[in-house]
Design a protein around this nucleic acid. Structure first.
Lengths: 228, 228
DNA sequence: CAGTCCTAACTGGTCTTACCAAATGAGGCA
DNA sequence: TGCCTCATTTGGTAAGACCAGTTAGGACTG
């Protein structure tokens, strides 16, 4: 069975999204470049693009590049309570412990050498500025570290979930860190130690170990949230 | 709010289908003629057409005209038993009594003068060849009469349902007529009398009366089925 | 006269080229 | 440093040509 040019382009884009090569929020190549790459007319490319848009995969707007959408967004919006209570946050953290473990697992398994190098660079930067930094920047660095792991997992579901989680609970995370900082005068040793363990498990490509450490890390922060 | 040309075309087609001007199975105008009529390029027309196709409104195939689809088809296929028992047929006929009544009602209300004239022509042809005809042709004529009423109702749901019903139960209808013919030597007077009443109620544009007669007609044939 | 076959005219599918309109980002300016 | 401007880039639309199936009508045959 030979696929038509349109079907090949469509499958190519869907595959890239499934493989996490085109993650939610990323820009698609322009219609003109896709037409050139797949040796087809811009008309045909446009019809494929519009099809994907109609199915909720991508968003297209005049003047700007088409962007991949996070398909979990509408689903989560429907199932989220209006008011985010502490109990709800604790529930979310419990689920997140599992998902973060899977994320670290697939990252250790699938990350490219290039991505591991980028992760190493980011990790060392985090270490270098560990002291004398605002909690806001600290929280942002924490987020970046976790998102890099998520993206390197090349797992569409995990990437989508991580994006939504960090976007939604960033303020809550920041709050927990601030409270902890005020209480103890500095961040608990646990966090940086756990980061180190996760980092090393990933760098040495030990998926199971990475899952273990990541899960424990989230459960630790969950306990912080519980007592804050 | 000014709609874009594409949105206008889309709404126009959807409206024509909702109004029963473009009934399931009917051909859409060609892309070129639509482009000329709405003063837009064929590209834009094609994108609208493809959108409607993706939503299951129409079917398009190279070389032939695009056709409206019967959107009840897939739904009914899912909810239909594998084996069509007599009890099931009787249930269907009960629902049909209501739907046929609505059909006659809207036909009397909405049919154009042209459609009434066509119905008159068909009815007289039926009268003229009432005798000495095979049950097969008789059943086909019966079907044509009812379908003309359904189409003149300009009610998408009623048209869709009628199409599927007659396509699906034509053999059963034929069977009932044959059995009745063999038993009594001729068709019972009821049927042609009822057809006449329906016909006159419609021609004189009496919706409520047409509904009454049509409902009674179906319940009459339902009793025939019950005792056959 | 009926039936069959074939062709011309449609239909949708694709490509090319050109231009318009909106977003973007780099460079210059305050 | 921050803001603003404008050329570039991106999607949106148009027009014309050609390809590839379908269809209907006319010619031909029995």
């Amino acid at each position: 069975m030979t696929l038509s040019a349109k079907e090949m382009l469509r499958q190519s884009l869907l595959n890239q999204m499934a493989r996490g090569e085109l993650i939610p929020g990323a820009s698609l190549p322009s219609e003109r470049s896709l037409a050139a790459e797949f040796q087809m007319s811009r008309n045909a490319v446009r019809e494929v693009i519009q099809g994907l848009q109609q199915e909720g995969w991508i968003q297209v707007r005049q003047g700007g590049a088409s962007r991949c959408l996070n398909r979990l967004q509408s689903h989560l919006e429907k199932h989220q309570p209006r008011e985010i209570s502490l109990a709800y946050q604790l529930d979310v953290m419990e689920a997140r412990a599992f998902l973060e473990g899977e994320t670290a697992y697939y990252c250790a398994l699938r990350a490219s050498d290039q991505e591991l190098a980028a992760l190493a660079k980011e990790y060392k930067a985090m270490q270098g500025r560990r002291k004398g930094q605002s909690t806001l920047l600290k929280a942002k660095a924490d987020l970046t570290f976790h998102m890099m792991i998520a993206e390197a997992s090349h797992h569409l579901l995990l990437i989508s979930y991580s994006q939504l989680f960090y976007e939604r609970y960033f303020n809550a995370i920041h709050e927990v860190l601030s409270t902890t900082l005020k209480r103890y005068g500095r961040y608990p040793d646990g966090i940086s130690q756990q980061h180190e363990k996760i980092y090393h498990a990933i760098q040495s490509r030990q998926p199971d170990q990475a899952r273990l450490e990541a899960t424990e890390h989230i459960l630790y922060t969950r306990r912080l949230l519980e007592t804050s």
